[in-house]
Design a protein around this nucleic acid. Sequence first.
DNA 1: GGCTCCCGCCACAGC
DNA 2: GCTGTGGCGGGAGCC
Length: 886
Amino acid sequence: MSSTLSEGQKLISKPLRSPFKERSAKDKGHVFVEPQTPLKNTSKASEAALLENMGPLTTPTKGLEAPSSEPWTPTSNLKMLISAASPEIRNREKERAINSSESENSQEPEQGEEVEKLQISRKDKSLGLLCYKFLARYPNYPNPAVNNDISLDDVAGELKVERRRIYDIMNVLESLNMVSRLAKNRYTWHGRVKLAQTLAMLKRAGKENCYGQLMQQIRQRSLEREDREFDLDGEEKENEEMSSFETDGDSGQAELSGADPKAASANSRKDKSLRVMSQKFVMLFLVSSPPVVSLEIAAKILIGEDHVVDQDKNKFKTKIRRLYDIANVLSSLELIKKVHVTEDRGRKPAFKWTGPDDLPSPKSEDLGTSTLSSASQPLESRSSVENCAKNLFSSPETKRGFTRHNSLVKLVKSIQDDRRKINSAPSSPVKMTGDSANGNFYTNKMAHLAAICKKHLDEQSTVHRIQPNNEVSLALSGRTSQVSELPDSTSASNHQSHGPSGMQIPVLPAALRPQPTSLAVRSMTFESPGSANTKTSSSNQTNQPSSDSKEPTSPSTLKRGCGEKSLAGSPSKLQRTEPKSVSPKLCEILQARLKARRGDFASTRPSPRALHLEFSKPSENQPPSLITGTASLEQSLETFLEKEEKVQTSDNEVRLKPVRPPQSPAQKPSVPFQDVVRPSGPIHTETLIPAGYLIPISQQSFVNFIDPQYSTGESSKASTQTYNIYHTPTAGSRPPLPQEITPTRLPLNRIPCISPFPSQGRHIHGPSPAILNFTLQNLGLIPGSTTPNSTPEQASTLPSPHSGLPPQGMIFVKPISPARTLHSIHGQHVTLISIPQPLVDTPKGGQHLQQSFFHTPVSFPTVTSSAAPRNIYIPQRKLDVSPEDS
DNA sequence: GGCTCCCGCCACAGC
DNA sequence: GCTGTGGCGGGAGCC
């Protein structure tokens, strides 16, 4: 649910229907104990008598009721006795009774069957109970030395259920790493050994993907819709709901879904698997607070990725069914329990997390290889995190074909057109990262900056080699100092798939992660908790509007972040990559491109977000050194361009100005993007706005973001889409409103990284030698050798003098988050500002963001078709959560 | 009448 | 073609 229940929400505890559940409460922690479910099937008459001793009674089944009216026969007597017994015992008794009745009444075999049917109530066959029985067969913490293999046939036979049912259980257990598949028909039992780790990982993934925020958004939208429905009739209501769902943030996902049912279906099967759904479902609990998730919201989130308007109803129903299946198993694991959430409009089924709250902080390594991966599960074949990410957000792209919404198709076309134009210039083999419209803008900048940088470098190149550190950056521009830190920030961002707001799923181990470019970092930082909040100052400068970072929310953003490939297509990508490529020719090419684009720049200029997103991509494959170099180069270019473009963009800026916090005249730079360089002024609440605003998009991003990182090939597609999104209103892209820009300028926004997980290996540091080298290399000033800092981490850790810091002072924000702070800032005038990471992890943070989002006029301009303003201010409604089980 | 969710058809994948 | 998996949704049980 939007994971967050408003304070007003109440949990209403109700008696669980399934005996099993009730029992679980008693037996918590005793997995092996045979379920001692309360009486079932007991006749009403007998119930009263049994109540006292038996505990809470479950609703009598039909079978039981029928007999009550019948004469007291041995059969009915048996039924009653059986019902009083625990499930297992009851089953045995049932069998015996059946057998006996059959033998006694051989003439009436039919009756025996009927009796059996009557005796075995539906509840007795529930998946939850079955799972409970299954769990009772194995220890929570099995001895590794012992053979823990599970034969499905054996289990099915022993439990007397169809194998099909066992598959359902196994899928859910597998999603939690409680079992792993060895071969067909064979699984290995892990018990709860890996459970904590798995949950921690899921929690992390959930946070990074902003599930909590997503839930919040969905919930708010649902409320809004409900409100609207009052004014609507019949189908109209439904239609609107469907359409709204599509267009809304959820829609982000929706859009991705399918126009192409066949392709989607072909590839989607696995993504729709119970395993994936189970993980996602669990994630919702782990990221939401209070940990209560309604089936409705969960279903919407799960459907969001690939739902199509037409199929919404059916899909929703199906999802609900599956969620019940999963919930039953999870309940049997005592991880959740059923409750009801009472809202203004009624009561909704929900589940409350009753599993462990204190989860071990997942180690990056773990994420990559550990838990999940350890199990030879399909999911685990990849790094666990990766699996989660993909599974969770089975991004449309990654999916089979990633069916696109019509609006996206249009966007893609337009993007492709842009690409063609852009690509008309000779392209270097290097991947082009930037994708968004910004690409053009940057391209121009890059070209110019390259030339400028080259000059500077020429002059200083010699010195730099000797003194790799800061000086170079300084030489380039005062702002360059900021750049130095970028690498770190970028690294953080890289790790995470870009989601909206850093929604990317952190999959790769820190070591493996490529360090994102400064730009990427910037954008990422703000939203992603883990990302080095630390990046702070540097990120601020370059990153500019936080809004950029937010972009990730949009599907496109996700894609962008991902693969380099994706980037290649988009113009922005080109820009990014170009610096990397370094070849002197690139500069020329870029210049040519930029010149061509400049004309368009003012009008078409993509939102800052797009820019940031674009840059994030390079991270994966690029060597750290390159990345850093790129970042520095970019910054220098940006600086240059800013100056240059100030004049051009002045018009645009005007809009932005109002939104922006007061800036020093120097900062004023007309171009929002360029804000990067500027020292951040006082932090304004406004700065936060962007993040919230992005959130809605993030939903979309969910769909995409995963893919890009993991699937390079697909990423390209994504990138394109993203690109379009920014330009066109349809895909949830917004016109570059002043508000949007505003955030970008505020460097501080990015600083607070939301990610709960401390960015691993991310360091903020001044310009590293690597950057210098890279820049030089790009400019052709020096041989292509890699920077001294072989490892990204090293590079990141290098102390940076920050000589390049602009006098005005960049503000280095000290992230509260565990993320490493900048140690490198020695000797610099650094203002340490501890900024709470508002946006972030906790659901509250998420709410906060959303609220800001909704309140912000800008927030969903395009998204919320009707009543946007109204929607924006959606008060949280009180929810009463009533536990099903007493 | 809505909520739950069992049941088994049938598609898909691997052999 | 067979077998193993498992997505899917009809529809019955339950409230």
